[in-house]
Design a binder for these strands. Structure first.
Lengths: 347, 347
DNA sequence: TTTTAGCACTCGCCTCTGTCGAGTGCTAGG
DNA sequence: CCTAGCACTCGACAGAGGCGAGTGCTAAAA
């Protein structure tokens, strides 16, 4: 990839076009570059270089006699080969840390706050994917009798995620008995990952069938029901949607509608974030790379977050392809690390 | 208010203008009304009537030689005095009930689904305000030791609302001991409203101070901490935001931004819904009546929902003032009642 | 007194036109 | 290999003019 742009000068021109385009959002011409980027060559020369870059597919002209705009490939090359990612300034870090002041006492609150931090520092939309229950470690199960034959199950994971389900049972069970079930299960399931819990329960049910122990089989049945629920699902917090309205490329209502539809639908975005969960470090999807159809002019910058060794979810920033990558990449990186640290300390 | 529009004909003209305006979204002229609404008078007569209505402040002209548009007051008069609210058709009801099929096993899911139902049937945005914890009846409290000196409190209300908080304590407490606290508190607080729970706890703490019972005073202290959390807060589910983009009056990006900002901010909308919680039945706020500044062209139609006698929250539809009130008012009404019924059955 | 027909007038919307300026590609000369 | 010069292209913008919907007013009819 790096070989695509051979000369030092080509690189500098590409960089200049991209920086200028990110700043202004309009096609950039040869003159502007010659002037502002101290390359001390004439516009005509720049034009020749730009023509070369266009042939390589890194730039393109919206129409004859307009300036150049970077293509997705151009941005990709820029990010991979030219952009030097510097650290976030001390002041920025300080300010981000301060946004969290007060400390969150609920996981939901912490994650939601994170989406706001991401959005307000990037001036784009911030997203945070919540942990999947099934990937976390079992901590506790609890049954509450809401009323006759209605039982609520509360499931708590090691990481402090709480999930509850309500269901109907055939016969009424007293709260005392439910408490017994709970104690039994809590002993049995300690320290298993939740997706293991499911298997373990089935296994135990086989055993109990033979023993005909009513209490235990009942307990197993109940918890079985609770887990039938989709513990595979993640939620998605989105902050700063309206920031996107400020981007001139989305002045077009059609574009906007597509993005807001994706926000409403969520599933597509969740899939994407899910994919980038396994890959460590910062991930960047430019335009159509995200494979969210109809989302050509949108980029994602994501990073997974964790608690201890357990990768819990992904967070990131969504914005136009014309985004200030040099600022937002370190932002996402730092925020993911900070969140991980906070989760580890609290949960 | 009714006296404002004296003649039968005036009323019919006002109605015609509003219906036509709701349908088309553009100012309506005298000719269209004379033709379509079978008043069997000439456009010129209609014009005279319209001039009268304008003088009363029920209609206005965006500019000379444009048709008329209803004012907020006009809509208000129409809704209060002219509109006959009919029932939702059997087919519609059936379809709404069917949207809920599968039954919700979690309160959150049920409420979120409701916001979607409201939006898809109204073609506008649907909102549902979640119950406030403090207004519900205590059912159960549970402490979970996450790790050394980190405790999670889980609070369950009679209506099936679950709230959890994590906090740090000075000294480590074993899970067994925490369970004891739980049992003690569950006995003591049974059937109290949550806002009473707070008072009761303080009261008990006074007593225990004298008795120096370590276990009890510790339990009280913990639950006290859990309740310091904002159990006053409500969440807001919003469905179908993007439907609003289809309304031509919001083609203007500025307008749109204001509304989406309010969605993001949420607090203003929560306040409004909160207000209309105490008032029974369907509430309608037209344009500036909602007192959400910068929201002139937006109307709210809301209705509280309950479980048994306990009013839990509010739901409603947000759309342009130019909304199909005759359809949406019964929709909101029916949905609120249906939700109430479902809550009562499940929780 | 109320309703209607006729008419002149207003104003937003659309299209057409011409001008301006930014930016290009090409060529010839340094 | 770089640069200056030049003709050309194309979008953005502003102004002119025509169209059509809709009005208010007046005078006559019911």
């Amino acid at each position: 990839m790096k070989g695509l742009v051979r000369g030092e000068r080509s690189r500098r021109v590409l960089e200049a076009v991209i920086l200028e385009y990110i700043k202004g959002g309009v096609p950039v011409g040869s003159r502007a570059i010659a002037k502002k980027y101290g390359l001390s060559v004439s516009p005509a020369t720049i034009r020749n270089v730009m023509a070369d870059l266009e042939e390589l597919g890194l730039l393109y002209q919206p129409h004859t006699s307009a300036g150049r705009v970077p293509t997705e490939l151009g941005l990709r090359v820029y990010i991979d080969a030219i952009l030097k990612i510097q650290q976030l300034s001390i002041a920025d870090r300080e300010q981000i840390r301060r946004s969290y002041q007060g400390g969150a006492s609920r996981l939901e609150g912490l994650l939601q706050e994170t989406s706001k931090v991401l959005s307000s520092f990037s001036k784009q939309a911030g997203v945070v994917l919540t942990p999947r229950l099934s990937h976390t470690v079992f901590k506790r199960i609890e049954f509450v009798r809401l009323r006759a034959s209605m039982v609520m199950t509360i499931l708590v994971s090691q990481a402090g995620i709480v999930h509850n389900t309500v269901f109907e049972i055939k016969e009424d069970i007293s709260q005392e008995e439910l408490d017994k079930y709970g104690r039994y299960l809590n002993d049995m399931l300690q320290d298993l990952a939740l997706h293991q819990v499911k298997a373990r329960l089935l296994e135990e049910m086989q055993k109990e069938k033979v023993l005909f122990d009513r209490l235990l089989s009942k307990a197993l049945e109940l918890s079985q029901k609770a887990l039938q629920e989709n513990i595979e699902n993640s939620e998605l917090y989105i902050g700063g949607r309206t920031n996107l309205l400020d981007n001139p490329e989305f002045a077009d209502v059609e574009q906007m509608r597509r993005i807001f539809n994706a926000f409403e639908e969520k599933s597509k975005i969740i899939d994407l974030l899910d994919k980038s969960m396994s890959a460590g470090g910062v991930n960047i999807f430019i335009g159509s790379e995200s494979e969210l159809l109809d989302m050509e002019s949108v980029s994602f910058i994501t990073s997974p977050y964790a608690s201890g060794d357990e990768v819990l979810g992904t967070l990131g920033v969504i914005g136009p392809t014309r985004m200030d990558y040099s600022r937002i990449i370190p932002l996402v990186d730092y925020t993911a690390k900070l969140l991980s640290k906070m989760l580890e300390e609290t949960f």
